[in-house]
Write a protein that binds this DNA or RNA. Structure first.
Lengths: 215, 215
DNA sequence: TCATAATATGACTGGTGTTCATTTAATGAC
DNA sequence: GTCATTAAATGAACACCAGTCATATTATGA
C-alpha cells in the first residue's frame, strides 16, 4: 500500500468536495438572486445543481446552513474590497470614511449580495450554536476589520476614545446595515416617504461619522 | 322592518368582530412570547383562541397578516409611551433625548414586544402592498412622531437642519432599531464580543444623538 | 476482478399554511 | 314559535416543503 498515493487521493477528494460545495452555493445563489431565498426550495436548488435533494444534505447541514454559506462568501467579498481600500499611512478616521464609502459603493454595485446578507433571519440567532456558522467574528471579517481601524483612529486621536473600539465598530456596522436593509429590502417604504435611497445612505453615513469623530 | 334596529345590530356585529380579532391577537401574542413566532402554528393559535384553524382566516388574510397585527398593536403601545413623555415646552433636541430614552426603557421592560417588532420578516417587504398592513407611516406611529419632534428641533435650532426631518427620523429610528435587534435577537453575538447590552444601547444612542445635534 | 468504502439518490415522513364545501348559529319577518 | 335567509365557524383536504434514510451507484486499491 502506497501511503503517499492514498494521501493524494484523499486530498483530491477533499478538493472535489470543496468544488461541489461551491457549485451548490453558486446554484443556490443564482436562484436566490432571481427569486429571493424564501421562494427557492431545496428541490429547486438541487435541480439547478444537477443533484438530488438528499445530496445537498451531504454538503450542508440544513437549508439555513446553505444560506449562511452564501452570506459568508459575500462577507469575504466585502472584506477584500475593504482591505484593498485601506491605507496604513492615513489616519483612522480617514480610513473609516473611505471604507464606509466603499462599502456603500459595493452595496450599489452588488445589491443582490447585500440582500443575501440582510436576509439572514435574525430570529434564528436565538440558538447560540448557529452563530458559529456565520463568520462575522472571524479575523478576516469586515466587522473585525472595522474594529482594528477604529482602534488605530483612537490611538492617533482622530476618533473619540470614550467608547470601546469593539462597541463602536458594532454600532457603526449595525447602523450601516440597518440603512442598507432599508434600501435593499424595504425600498417601497423609503419611497413612500419620498426619500431618495442614495441620499439616505450618504446622510446616514455622514451622521454616524459625525458621532464618532473626535471633537 | 326597523332600519335603526338593523343598524345597531350591524354595529354590534362589527364590535364583536373586532373583539374576536383582538382575542385572536391576544392568543397569538401569548404563544408568540412563550415560544417565538416561528415555532407557533396556526393550529396552535386556533386552539389557544378556542377556534378552528379555518376561522382565523376570516379575521386575518394570512399568518403574516396576523403577525403584522401584533406588531401594529405594539407600535401603538410605543406611540402612547412616547406621547406621554413629550413636553411641548422643551426644545426639540431635549424631547428627542427623552423620547429616545423612554423607547430604550420600554425595550428593557417589554423585551417580548420589541422582539415581535424586530422579527417582522423584512424579506416580505418586497411585495409593495404588504407595507400597507404595517402601520409605520400612519399619523400615530412612533416614526411619524419622531419626525415631528425633529422638525420642531430644527425650527428652534437645537437640531441640525441640513438633513430633512423625515430622513433624519428614519435614520434615527433605523439606528435605534438595529441596536435593539442586536440586543434582543442577536444577544449571543453581542455577548460573544464581550459587550454589555445596556451599555451598547446607551452608547449607540449618545452617538446617534451627537450626530444629530446642532454644533 | 472484487470487496469495501464513499457518494448519490429520491421516495417517504411529518408538519404546515391555506382553501372550501359543509355545518352550525344568528337574524328578523310573519 | 316557525322558517327562510344570511353570517360565521368548521375541519377535512390540498399543496408544498425541509429533512431522512434505505437503497443504488460509483470509486478505490488490493
Amino acid at each position: 500500500m502506497n501511503t503517499s498515493h492514498i494521501m493524494s487521493v484523499t486530498e483530491r477528494k477533499k478538493r472535489e468536495k470543496q468544488l461541489r460545495r461551491n457549485a451548490i452555493i453558486d446554484a443556490a445563489e443564482q436562484l436566490f438572486f432571481k427569486q429571493g431565498f424564501d421562494n427557492v426550495s431545496m428541490d429547486q436548488i438541487a435541480r439547478e445543481a444537477d443533484l438530488a435533494k438528499g445530496t445537498l444534505y451531504l454538503y450542508f447541514k440544513s437549508r439555513e446552513d446553505l444560506h449562511y454559506s452564501i452570506v459568508n462568501r459575500v462577507l469575504e467579498m466585502i472584506y477584500k474590497v475593504l482591505k484593498d481600500q485601506y491605507d496604513p499611512e492615513k489616519k483612522g478616521a480617514e480610513n473609516l470614511l473611505k471604507l464606509g464609502k466603499s462599502y456603500i459603493d459595493f452595496s450599489q454595485n452588488y445589491p443582490n449580495h447585500i440582500r443575501a446578507i440582510m436576509m439572514v433571519d435574525s430570529s434564528k440567532f436565538e440558538k447560540l450554536d448557529k452563530n458559529q456558522s456565520l463568520k462575522i467574528l472571524e479575523p478576516d471579517s469586515p466587522l473585525v476589520f472595522f474594529t482594528e481601524i477604529i482602534k488605530k483612529g483612537q490611538l492617533d486621536g482622530s476618533i473619540r476614545s470614550d467608547i470601546r473600539d469593539r462597541e463602536m465598530a458594532l454600532i457603526l456596522w449595525s447602523h450601516l446595515s440597518s440603512i442598507l436593509e432599508l434600501v435593499t429590502l424595504r425600498l417601497p417604504l423609503v419611497n413612500a416617504m419620498g426619500i431618495n435611497e442614495k441620499e439616505l445612505l450618504e446622510k446616514q453615513f455622514e451622521l454616524s461619522l459625525r458621532g464618532v469623530l473626535s471633537k
